[in-house]
Amino acid sequence: MDLSWMAWTKPTAIFFVVIALLIAGMATWERISPGGSPRVGVLRLKTHRGDRLFITLLGSAFIHLAWLGLTPFSLWGALIVSAIYGTLVFSFV
């Protein structure tokens, strides 16, 4: 099957594989500990762990965009900030 029209590159393939692995990881986590561990966090919203992953991914996308738009530094910095942000979301949101 010719997929050249999709213009795949190694970095974008890695990106999608990571997203797929995250979703698979969440499914495994749900299997081990069903129920999604609902709680009301600092945002005063009831969230499940799927919501927390969504908030992490969406927030990380905006962190990367803000990093690109506002700083001249390498994107690795945005990745570190996103990892810290994700940890905070999974701990407190």
Partner: peptide, 8 residues
């Protein structure tokens, strides 16, 4: 996915 590929 294709749009993501094009964007880079």
């Amino acid at each position: 996915m294709t749009v993501v590929n094009y964007s880079v």
